[in-house]
Design a protein around this nucleic acid. Structure first.
Length: 558
RNA sequence: GCGCCCGUAGCUCAGUUGGAUAGAGCAGCAGAUUUCUAAUCUGUUGGUCAGGGGUUCGAUUCCCUUCGGGCGCACCA
């Protein structure tokens, strides 16, 4: 349990005992008070209670303060102006809490997810080409959110959907065939709506290399490429090639999916038919104009949606019904879909499916990521596949590196448009915020390097060897910032906002840089040195956990 | 026309189911290095939280409305 949770729990307990009122932890605040205010932590609990209790917040505050003062680890409580409750804690209590962070990973964890299984689907790009920068934001956001959930009491499944069933896949296969045949001097053309990119030719070359001359000869001079017997083989080869490529790119980006879920398997295993029947039984389908429609308007959509076309084929939406059912059957208590800005019309549809299948609406959560604007030296770049100037995730990683890329993608709220300045991300300077964090870590490591010359063994700054009688202002503020991190991990999970954590890791680094400028660690006074090494050891550990969540490298030297 | 997101410092953005003097980074200005890495630190300039109305002890936050920007409204995936 984090220090914030401990305090909140005690406050809750007091409120319950004194007033018989049950309050939720997330209902009231507990955080560092502003600069010139007294106390280590401040809470608005009295003001929160003022309304329902019809009592002046200041009086409530005083009553709560009386009880708080009885607690052993609390040294002082003050009630400020309207009713803020400001609390100071025993220094040895801080020592114990820091020690917990050092000793166990679980000290960073919280139980927001209550052991539930969450399936987080993101990226889900068409398997027809390289991942682009939009997938990059989804990958960074989705993976970081999953990391946060791992620390927040969820069992997470990172999943991506492979749209290997529909028209895009078909067009890609035809494009690949055309390019392949061109390599043998044939005049076949890539379809107009097909994929013109040069990478298709590269894949064709790879295929030529592997399959050899004999394979080419089996292909007759068919009129329509899709009728050709070898079509499935092209399709399969192209698919595998692109998926391997995408996997490799994501690996470089630090993202690893537990599941690459194939749309085709849903059809092959009859799951689409099955899910179809289920919805039908619930009376949510009807026929109109020779097509089958799903009454999504029952669940708040602005119009009903076609699931079976007049030609008898299923729509993509129909596969989604089976897909969501499949996720639930695999054990997902919560299904999260992370989609691009052009999919916001899809939110109601997915919610309709969940409800149509007979589950509660809250079981699905659709998060819409806003668009990424790519800037180069302040100028907005227009990306378009047609013009061939869209930036792939590979190119981005090449030019700015994984750390800067991940950091930039998650430093903003998911609901805001993101300006990604290529020049800035590339720049190795103080303008680039990712270096601020990495530099803090490198400085920290350097202190431990220097300390090795005087301190024989790290056990010399174990918790039981050091004194915590007095703390400098910078020391106390740094300690508080460290001990609040587990709470910020929890809040990031609640808000589904990695940027909330990133911001506080930035503040943590800032506190450390101030500390560094003011206080010396390696010095003659062994007592003070041991105390500071102990604090910094906890900080180092905290940075490592946070860097791991964000997906950036802790660099020991810069 | 309908729907979603956005409008906060010169720029890019945080801001917790409404709460302390609205915060960071960059840019600007003035300083700090014989001492563990100056990719740092300290101080400082800069705000009608797009405009208007409402709810209340209290609104950047909730509601209504106007204006401005982005995106979406397929028997495509």
């Amino acid at each position: 349990m984090s220090i914030v949770e401990i305090l909140k729990n005690d406050i809750k307990e007091i409120v319950k005992k004194k007033y018989g009122v049950k309050v939720d932890s997330s209902a009231f605040d507990l955080a560092a008070p502003p600069e010139n205010q007294p106390g280590h932590f401040g809470s608005n609990i009295a003001m929160f209670l003022a309304k329902p209790m019809k009592k002046a917040p200041f009086i409530i505050g005083e009553e709560i303060a009386q009880e708080l003062r009885k607690l052993e680890y609390i040294t002082a409580v003050e009630i400020i102006k309207p009713g803020y409750t400001n609390i100071s804690l025993n220094l040895s209590f801080y020592k114990n809490e820091l020690d917990k962070l050092l000793k166990s990973d679980s000290a960073f964890k919280n139980n927001f997810g209550k052991g539930k299984t969450v399936n987080i689907e993101f990226v889900s790009a068409n398997p027809v080409g390289p991942l682009n920068i939009v997938s990059g934001r989804a990958a960074a956001y989705g993976d970081t959110l999953a990391n946060i959930f791992d620390y927040s009491g969820y069992k997470t499944v990172r999943e991506t959907y492979v749209n290997d069933f529909g028209r895009q896949m078909h067009l890609f296969a035809l494009s690949l065939m055309a390019r392949y045949l061109q390599l043998y001097g044939r005049t076949n053309q890539v379809p107009e709506e097909g994929y013109q990119g040069e990478y298709v030719t590269e894949i064709a070359k790879a295929m030529k290399e592997i399959k050899g001359e004999a394979f080419y000869k089996t292909i007759g001079n068919v009129e329509k490429l899709e009728d050709c017997l070898q079509y499935p083989e092209f399709r399969a080869f192209g698919l595998k090639h692109v998926l391997d490529w995408q996997k490799q790119t994501l690996e470089r980006f630090g993202v690893k999916f537990d599941e690459w879920f194939s749309e085709t398997t849903l059809h092959e295993k009859g799951e689409v038919d099955e899910a179809f029947k289920l919805i039908e039984k619930r009376g949510l389908f009807y026929e109109k104009e020779d097509a089958v429609w799903f009454k999504t308007t029952e669940f708040g959509d602005d119009k009903d949606r076609v699931v079976k076309k007049t030609d008898g084929g299923y729509t993509y939406f129909a596969s989604d019904i089976a897909y969501i059912q499949n996720k639930v059957k695999r054990g997902a208590d919560l299904v999260i879909n992370i989609l691009g800005p052009d999919h916001h019309g899809y939110v109601k549809r997915l919610e309709s499916i969940m409800q149509g299948l007979g589950y509660e609406k809250e079981r699905i959560r659709v998060i819409i990521l806003q668009q990424v604007n790519l800037l180069e030296g302040g100028e907005k770049m227009k990306m378009s596949k047609r013009a061939g100037n869209f930036v792939s995730l590979d190119e981005l990683l090449e030019s700015v590196g994984r750390d800067a890329a991940r950091y930039f993608f998650i430093m903003r709220s998911y609901s805001s448009h993101l300006d990604f300045d290529l020049e800035l991300a590339k720049e190795q300077s103080d303008k680039n915020p990712v270096y601020y964090l990495q530099y803090a870590y490198a400085r920290l490591c350097n202190i431990f390097e220097k300390a090795k010359e005087v301190v024989k063994d790290s056990s010399e700054y174990d918790a039981d060897k050091i004194a915590f009688e007095t703390l400098e202002k910078e020391e106390l503020e740094l300690i508080r910032a460290i001990l609040c991190i587990p709470e910020f991990i929890k809040e990031s999970a609640e808000r589904e906002s990695p940027n909330w954590l990133v911001q506080h890791v930035h503040f943590l680094a800032s506190h450390f840089h101030s500390f560094y400028g003011k206080l010396r660690v390696v010095q003659d006074d062994k007592q003070i040195m041991a105390k500071r090494l102990f604090i910094l050891n906890a900080l180092k550990r905290t940075f490592e956990v946070c860097f791991g969540i964000i997906g950036i490298t802790p660099r020991t030297k810069m």
